[in-house]
Design a protein around this nucleic acid. Structure first.
Lengths: 312, 312
DNA sequence: GCTTAGCATTCTCGGAAAATGAATACTAAA
DNA sequence: TTTAGTATTCATTTTCCGAGAATGCTAAGC
């Protein structure tokens, strides 16, 4: 072998591994093939092959098992993968930390459950924007399960989710306390009437997609009411759901604050349930990181400031 | 600005930062100048300048303040530095983790206090080498303070230090329990004779360099004996120290096991002290890492196996 | 059983980035 | 004022990396 002094300091440490190599590796691992990885990385197969081979040569072990339909990780690959992901996350964080001079500014990605976004966030976001106009806030909605995953992997800076959440990597603070209520069409004046007036298997349950905590609560309530096999109807939007309830397609469970307006207007009726089913805390979660991102700190400051604990 | 599509995936993530850049940055930060850093990195100044400038351009902030005698970190640089160090450590760890197939092998750097190395480790190391001949073990000695720092920054895989040590990043297990004794020349038959027979300010204290825990204990004892301003004589080696004590140059404090042989031979005399000064645990410390390095695990297994808790 | 589609690997070539080394400019100490 | 030490700039060379085509392989499809 000829002398292969690639780069001045790689000789120094003995390691040539670079972040790009690790990203390539992660991508191949995730997609299970060089062709697919090359496609996602906007390059050609040959390139990815070379990088992987170089990485394997440096580490001294095969990272993938090659078979005709792609590649799967070897033991060494499985051990390397979490490091690759961790380092990628750290590099993103590092740039943000360096740029962050304490003045809240720059991008901030916040996630939220749809229900919280509808009734709690408008005021809060307005307030935030008034105080920190330099922050470019992005709000996206998803289920609690997806939001937790997104915060953990760094694609969201923080999120409003339904508690309880316990995770060592997350800092969570109570943002709002909600009371869930069973929502039915206007014609069902009481819970008793609803239970008496529907078919034996119970009314149709209007639910968000899997991963939503409110849905789980509704499942519990239905089980207790003896409706374990009631029909489920999955909807994607809050407005659609309330509309369907108003049209007596079924019932759902939502925070009182969310349906208060519809209730007052007479579009739907609401039914109280026992506290153990209805008390739910909306938490704001963020990743535990070395550096406190100023924009995020500003956001949390807005949370603490006023809007907390509104509903009974 | 012209199109600057450097590398396929750097565009993808938006970050061009590489580990080499971060290592360059760390080195400049540590040495406080581009010339010194270039020297250590085996390259020329111009190169380092370019890398730093590129890094600053990408992050969008100056990382160093330039002045005629070198460079110092700006706020942004100070925020970036811990990330750079962390990532460098992770990359080292990642390679080891990937290479480590569960069979203890490869390099293993262990540190120890000189006293422990002298009397406790010979058996242990022999045993370890018998069980895991594929591991290339390196032993170095230093003070407890230096050892802790070395383990934390990854230059040692583990170390024997004097307890107590509390640190979130460290796992520590009790390896040995030692009884410290005051060691004097043979002619001082009792502690009382020693106290009566020396000058008012006390005997000379023979000590290791700063950072040694035994030295701190000795300082406490001297303070209690009313010798706060006794002379200090700093030595680097254990043999030298015992020799000096035998020659009645002064007294020192060492684990009983260390001086047992010299005591039996009649070279020195030992004096018991009250337990709060003399009980000391020798801990084996290692970094908390994602991956358990097999060679290190094997070492700890040897520790647990037999040699524990020998001294009373 | 042959073909075909999908995949990874190998190879060469051209371009871009990095290392080099010398020249320059700056500042503080001598 | 000189000098030593420093960072920066520039021009040049070297190296490396990505693109693209060709190759070889395996399993699914007819």
């Amino acid at each position: 072998m000829n002398t292969k002094e690639r780069c001045y300091l790689r000789n120094e440490t003995g390691y040539e591994m670079e972040l790009t190599d690790l990203l390539t590796f992660s991508t191949v691992a995730r997609l299970g093939g060089i062709t697919r990885a090359a496609d996602e990385l906007n390059t050609v197969q040959s390139n990815v092959t070379q990088r992987i081979k170089a990485l394997e040569a440096e580490i001294g072990t095969a990272l993938f098992e090659r078979h005709s339909r792609g590649m799967t990780l070897t033991g060494a690959g499985r051990r390397l993968l979490p490091y690759a992901q961790r380092m990628a996350a750290l590099s993103r964080e590092a740039v943000l930390a360096a740029r962050d001079d304490g003045e809240p500014k720059g991008p901030l990605s916040i996630g939220s459950m749809e229900t919280t976004a509808a009734v709690r966030l408008p005021m809060l976001l307005a307030e935030f924007h008034r105080r920190f106009p330099a922050v470019r806030l992005t709000l996206s909605t998803a289920t609690t399960a997806d939001l937790v995953a997104a915060v953990l992997d760094g694609s969201l800076d923080g999120a409003f989710v339904a508690g309880p959440i316990e995770h060592a990597e997350l800092i969570s603070t109570v943002a709002f306390r909600e009371e869930l209520v069973l929502v039915s069409a206007q014609r069902w004046k009481t819970l008793a009437a609803l239970r008496a007036g529907t078919s034996e298997s119970g009314p149709t349950a209007l639910v968000f997609r899997t991963g939503c905590t409110y849905r789980q609560r509704l499942e519990q309530v239905f089980a207790e009411f003896g409706w374990p096999s009631a029909a489920r109807f999955e909807l994607g939007t809050l407005d659609g759901m309330i509309g369907c309830v108003a049209a007596d397609m079924g019932v759902t469970m939502l925070p009182r604050a969310v349906v208060e307006r519809d209730y007052v207007r007479g579009d739907v009726n609401i039914h109280k349930l026992s506290p153990q089913h209805t008390r739910v805390e909306t938490l704001f979660i963020q990743r535990r990181t070395a550096h406190q991102y100023s924009a995020l700190q500003g956001f949390v400051a807005c949370l603490d400031g006023d809007d907390r604990v509104v509903a009974a």
